[in-house]
């Protein structure tokens, strides 16, 4: 025991070290601190770089199309014959198709999602919530190609035989699946924003004798509206950017349904057009460029939606922080 102590005492005591930095230490510290910070920064900044590269390369490949072809025709004509001798690039019905399935999917998904979000945040005990959450997470985890597989091999034959449709792959099929895929996103963001509404608001409402329904619809949801709007916009982003499902389930017919509300007709979306046509093009051909042009439109749309969602998320955050 004594031995040990003796040994330890031989070690130079830390107390003998100076509290002031020597010049070398000072310089080393300075250098290491700043070079380390720079490395961290440089690596982190990659994300920004990647976003810039994505915008640059997609626009660079697609821009020649807008230079060489009629931009107005692209947005207003329904004639899409990219491989013809006299090619026509009218993407109206393709852009319409994307919006068509997205909006019908949202019409299906939003009411159900908000009800579910209310259920999770207002009605159910913590315990049941812990069982329902994984269900939502698993719905979100199913790969989109598996949803597409289900749409083509299970849902399409079902629709065809039970509803007497001429084809099971149509806007209805795609919208149904897209709505399921948008559910988890909308539910979780909406639930967060509803939960963030403070207890005091609710208690005030209940205290005035309101029922749960009245409290939720007249107090909680209006207070959480920013978050709910953000949730819907995020769900929309998910639906409009989805590729595999619409490619496999929408039928890929280049048409605007007539009458316009006839969901049982096939449509074609932007994402599916890119996915389906790219294999048949050669690099630099007008067809190839036109697909990148569609990519630019898609990128612009999602970017816009992203900014909108961020605006609403930010104001939702501010609202809940006020409390």
């Amino acid at each position: 025991m004594k031995n040990n102590n003796a040994q330890i005492n031989k070690e130079p005591k830390t107390s003998s070290r100076s509290l002031a930095l020597t010049a070398l230490e000072d310089f080393n510290g300075f250098a290491i601190y700043h070079s380390g910070r720079f490395v961290l920064f440089a690596v982190s900044f990659n994300t920004v770089l990647i976003v810039l590269l994505i915008f640059y390369f997609v626009i660079q490949q697609g821009l020649p199309f807008f230079k060489n072809f009629d931009t107005i025709e692209f947005f207003t004509s329904k004639q899409w014959y990219p491989e013809a001798d006299n090619p026509k690039f009218g993407a109206l019905s393709i852009i319409f198709g994307s919006l068509y399935v997205t909006i019908s999917a949202l019409l299906l998904a939003v009411p159900a999602a908000i009800l579910a979000a209310v259920f999770l945040s207002e009605i159910v005990s913590h315990k049941i919530r812990n069982y329902v959450k994984p269900v939502i997470e698993l719905l979100a985890a199913i790969p989109s190609v598996a949803y597409g597989f289900f749409a083509v091999l299970v849902l399409a034959p079902f629709l065809q035989t039970h509803f007497g449709l001429s084809t099971g792959t149509n806007a209805l099929n795609a919208s149904l699946i897209l709505s399921i895929m948008a559910l988890p996103t909308i539910i979780s963001v909406a639930e967060d924003s509803i939960t963030a509404i403070g207890r005091d608001l609710r208690e005030a409402s209940y205290g005035l004798g309101a029922t749960r329904f009245e409290t939720i619809f007249k107090v909680v949801i209006p207070a959480a509206h920013s978050g709910i709007i953000a949730a819907i916009v995020l769900g929309m982003m998910r639906a409009i950017g989805e590729t595999m499902v619409v490619w496999m389930a929408s039928g890929n017919a280049n048409q605007i349904p007539s009458p316009w509300w006839d969901l049982t007709q096939s449509v074609r979306t932007m994402t599916a057009t890119i996915a389906g046509d790219m294999g048949e093009t050669s690099k630099g051909s007008p067809h190839y460029q036109s697909l990148f042009a569609i990519g630019i439109v898609l990128l612009a749309m999602t970017f816009l939606l992203n900014i909108i969602s961020e605006y609403f998320l930010a104001s939702a955050g501010k609202n809940s922080r006020k409390k």
Binding site: G241, E242, G295, L298, L299, T302, L305
Partner: peptide
């Protein structure tokens, strides 16, 4: 980046 569609 999180919002860019997968096909893009």
């Amino acid at each position: 980046l999180a919002g860019v569609p997968s096909i893009v």
